[in-house]
Design a protein around this nucleic acid. Sequence first.
DNA 1: TTGAAAGCGCTAACAC
DNA 2: GTGTTAGCGCTTTCAA
Lengths: 346, 346
Amino acid sequence: MEKIYTIKDIAELAKVSKGTVDRVLHKRGKVSQVALDKVNAVLNEIEYRPNLIARNLKNTKIYRICVLLPDPKYDPYWHPCTEGIAEAKNEFKAFNIAVENFFFNPKSTSSFIETNEALLKTSPDAVLLVPLFYKEALTVIENYNSLGIISSTFNNQFQSSAIKSFVGQDLFQSGRVAARLLDLLLKNGSIAIIHIDEKYKNAIHMQEKEKGFRNYFSELESDEFEILTCKLKHPKFEIKLTDFLNSYPDLAGIFVTTSKAYQVAEITSKIEGKKIAIVGYDLIKNNIEYLNNNVIDFLIHQNPKRQAYLGIANLIEHFIFDIEIPKEQLLPIDIVNSENAKNYIV
Amino acid sequence: MEKIYTIKDIAELAKVSKGTVDRVLHKRGKVSQVALDKVNAVLNEIEYRPNLIARNLKNTKIYRICVLLPDPKYDPYWHPCTEGIAEAKNEFKAFNIAVENFFFNPKSTSSFIETNEALLKTSPDAVLLVPLFYKEALTVIENYNSLGIISSTFNNQFQSSAIKSFVGQDLFQSGRVAARLLDLLLKNGSIAIIHIDEKYKNAIHMQEKEKGFRNYFSELESDEFEILTCKLKHPKFEIKLTDFLNSYPDLAGIFVTTSKAYQVAEITSKIEGKKIAIVGYDLIKNNIEYLNNNVIDFLIHQNPKRQAYLGIANLIEHFIFDIEIPKEQLLPIDIVNSENAKNYIV
DNA sequence: TTGAAAGCGCTAACAC
DNA sequence: GTGTTAGCGCTTTCAA
């Protein structure tokens, strides 16, 4: 139980005033060399840990944090994010923090840009965003930087020196996790990587997952498996996929790189006398149903709720406790089967 | 942005003093009916949320929390717990909280009792403990209750009305998770549940895992699998297990209910021309090695670090923020393969 | 029964 | 440059 020193203690020990100690601690200048030396002498002797609580008592500034994320009404994947944000908000409600959500349409880059403009009008101190569109996100973030707005990202990994913080998964590695699962499930045959419904080029996340997936099998150096890639889009999704399945009769497994595995499951479940293993992403309702029916074998959980929670919590702790925001926080890649799914959904 | 009311605001609105408002808020009595009505009238109008930070500024009491847990030097499984405890301690270092660890020998009930006696001498405000031994833990907890010491448990589920709080896994369900994994991995054959190195009767956790495991297969209503149980103890572990393996040549999978799966893996890895699927528990070094060698297929992660972290954090938040401690916090049952292991270890 | 006042640790404004 | 002071919101003590 070492003693907890306060500024008052230090002032008395150094025989200066609290004000001077404060100036030294915060390097506000206007301190004579003599006083500086006296205070530093004391600081070297003891371990001073400022009471962060007391510091914030005074602070009447309300920090504004805005979140720029896809609207859950277009894609239920994003719904848990709003819960995570609410949770963080609640946890820090004792402090002066205002958090506001701004939703954009995940299929529209212009919606992203317009929503961001609305967001900027509220002059936030920080923005937490999902950089869904590479090019547009880059512009937006550079703009934040020039305006002195702190920005953090989550969910979509994004290579750029403009970004100071990211919370999410290592997508390459998650591709490897999926590959390992299918490797264990299957003895041989063809395995398809299916990308659904997004522009492949602007969607780095799908590319990374594919890379990781292929990387695992290339390291295996086995010729038991053949890896195929298939990109599908609405409309004609069903016909295209059926065609694809017919042309590869030895297809044993499918890796769906988006949260749309249920769309594939819907079709493969109708195939008689054959079970195609499926590994997909995300614990949305439709996927869980097929998981429970044993049509989907595994889902990889990206934990959007915790991603958003941590994104917000990091920012708040930065503002009130002066804690540095971690450059990159990689969350575990959760493997989900029919039996442990409910534990992740709560 | 609704206004944040302070006690001062309320006092002015009710035309009484801050002191009176405080007495009403804390039901300290000594308030006239007239004053009470005036204050309540205001409180009904506005939403008052006390500033929990300011409340604790004054508080000079140092809360003592003791942790009673198995010594990691006997079983490395417990090591991450100390990290989780340290993390919680660090996170709340701004408050007056003292956390102290007390380690007992996980193989000795008397060590448990003696360590607890040493712990009690420090007169803690709360104890977080691992109720490893059913009978002894019960006595100890009832004693805490009579002494007015708050107690919480983690890791080992424990049915008793004496317990107010538990953080850990649903062990029955984790048995089902393991069963589902082996079901997916295997087509047919015998599957063995192996209990290693603990007194089965006093170890409810192993019983629960077995129950869940068997429950899954009984629901399957398939006669593809035969489920066996095998209890092994040092010494002669190796001979006994080898005998067992020889007597069941169609053995296709093994479920190890403790963190000792590596001991089984050591033996099965020497069997030529046959791969027995293994599912075990816990990310300790030896297990991870066999996981990476593909001898162990899956490990179930019990997240001891987070369990301990949450146990401590709940207690601290109770003390400083008056937050109720959740009766039961069930953590996800994490499925780990060679590819996502490192994300959980960090 | 009530109000006034002091003080928790820190910050910022203000004299000197 | 430096020390003093007021005040953040709440609790507690003390005097009335």
